[in-house]
Simulated assay, not measured.
Amino acid sequence: MTTRRPDPPARASAGAPSRRTPAAYVRAVVALGANLGDRRATLDAAVRELDRLPLTGSVVCSEPLETVAVKLDGPDADAPAYLNAVALVETRLAPTVLLGFLQAIEQRHGRVRRERWGDRTLDLDLIVYGDVVSDDPRLVLPHPRAAERDFVLLPWLQVDPDAVLPGHGPVAALVAGRGAR
């Protein structure tokens, strides 16, 4: 499920960037999940769509991890199991613009937002956008529950063993500190 494109072009190192010099790429971490329909095909299609986003360089995705569905009060053994993955996306899109593209991809795959913790054909969460910290109600960064979610942390470590969750520290330490669940 790994997609790679050439590394983003380097910025000119001497002097101020010209108007033609593209903005620097930022690494965004996107969590993918699906528990309805052909989960693997949906995740694969979503990664291909991430790879085709404008102003985006490389996209690297973990292998999917099957997990039990989780509701607000804990595991939901009655719900279909999820496939979860994490994609690292090198992008020049602003965080809110990237979020808009993620929501459009979800909609193309039949995502319906009826209940907050409901089953879904596709869920794309923006976990981290570089080192941006935001408490804007439209986009909280880093994702407020990422540190608690092994279905995010474990696949993230797969594609970035040195990952750091801003405000929480190394992802490996978060997982090791409580044992993978």
Score class of each variant (00 low, 15 high):
residue 77 A to Y: 03
residue 159 V to L: 05
residue 105 I to Q: 06
residue 84 N to S: 08
residue 1 M to N: 14
residue 62 S to R: 02
residue 140 V to G: 02
residue 116 R to P: 05
residue 37 G to E: 03
residue 83 L to R: 06
residue 161 P to W: 01
residue 37 G to Y: 03
residue 94 A to D: 07
residue 178 R to H: 13
residue 24 A to G: 10
residue 10 A to F: 04
residue 160 D to P: 03
residue 45 A to T: 06
residue 130 G to H: 03
residue 51 D to P: 12
residue 42 T to W: 00
residue 70 V to R: 12
residue 67 T to K: 04
residue 127 I to C: 00
residue 108 R to Y: 08
residue 142 P to W: 02
residue 50 L to K: 07
residue 171 V to S: 06
residue 147 A to F: 00
residue 157 L to M: 10
residue 20 R to L: 15
residue 99 L to I: 09
residue 121 T to E: 02
residue 109 H to C: 01
residue 89 V to N: 06
residue 158 Q to M: 00
residue 127 I to T: 03
residue 78 D to A: 10
residue 96 T to D: 12
residue 123 D to T: 02
residue 164 V to S: 13
residue 141 L to A: 03
residue 169 G to C: 03
residue 178 R to P: 05
residue 67 T to A: 01
residue 2 T to L: 15
residue 132 V to S: 10
residue 95 P to D: 06
residue 115 E to L: 07
residue 7 D to P: 10
residue 154 L to T: 05
residue 174 L to G: 00
residue 150 D to N: 01
residue 69 A to N: 09
residue 40 R to M: 15
residue 28 A to G: 12
residue 142 P to V: 02
residue 24 A to N: 04
residue 155 P to N: 03
residue 7 D to L: 13
residue 123 D to P: 00
residue 81 A to P: 15
residue 72 L to H: 13
residue 157 L to W: 02
residue 164 V to E: 13
residue 155 P to C: 04
residue 157 L to Y: 00
residue 113 R to H: 04
residue 178 R to F: 03
residue 89 V to F: 01
residue 33 G to K: 01
residue 82 Y to K: 10
residue 56 T to V: 14
residue 133 V to F: 02
residue 72 L to V: 14
residue 62 S to K: 01
residue 180 A to I: 08
residue 159 V to G: 05
residue 129 Y to E: 12
residue 48 R to K: 12
residue 113 R to F: 05
residue 132 V to I: 11
residue 150 D to W: 02
residue 163 A to L: 05
residue 172 A to Y: 13
residue 25 Y to S: 05
residue 108 R to A: 09
residue 156 W to T: 05
residue 127 I to E: 00
residue 76 D to F: 04
residue 145 R to S: 14
residue 62 S to I: 00
residue 72 L to A: 14
residue 141 L to I: 00
residue 84 N to T: 06
residue 58 S to Q: 08
residue 115 E to A: 14
residue 58 S to P: 12
residue 181 R to Q: 07
residue 19 R to A: 15
residue 15 G to P: 08
residue 159 V to T: 11
residue 17 P to E: 11
residue 98 L to D: 10
residue 130 G to A: 06
residue 137 P to Y: 04
residue 34 A to R: 00
residue 84 N to H: 08
residue 177 G to V: 03
residue 160 D to I: 04
residue 55 L to R: 15
residue 108 R to S: 08
residue 75 P to R: 06
residue 107 Q to K: 15
residue 55 L to A: 13
residue 36 L to R: 15
residue 38 D to K: 07
residue 35 N to M: 09
residue 16 A to T: 14
residue 40 R to T: 12
residue 156 W to S: 04
residue 17 P to F: 09
residue 152 V to K: 09
residue 47 V to S: 04
residue 95 P to G: 11
residue 75 P to I: 11
residue 163 A to I: 04
residue 97 V to A: 11
residue 59 V to E: 04
residue 19 R to K: 12
residue 159 V to N: 07
residue 87 A to L: 13
residue 180 A to S: 10
residue 155 P to W: 01
residue 40 R to H: 15
residue 161 P to F: 00
residue 38 D to A: 14
residue 170 P to L: 00
residue 79 A to T: 09
residue 85 A to P: 02
residue 83 L to T: 11
residue 162 D to G: 01
residue 116 R to S: 11
residue 5 R to P: 11
residue 51 D to W: 13
residue 20 R to T: 13
residue 168 H to E: 05
residue 123 D to H: 03
residue 158 Q to K: 01
residue 167 G to Y: 10
residue 101 F to E: 13
residue 82 Y to P: 12
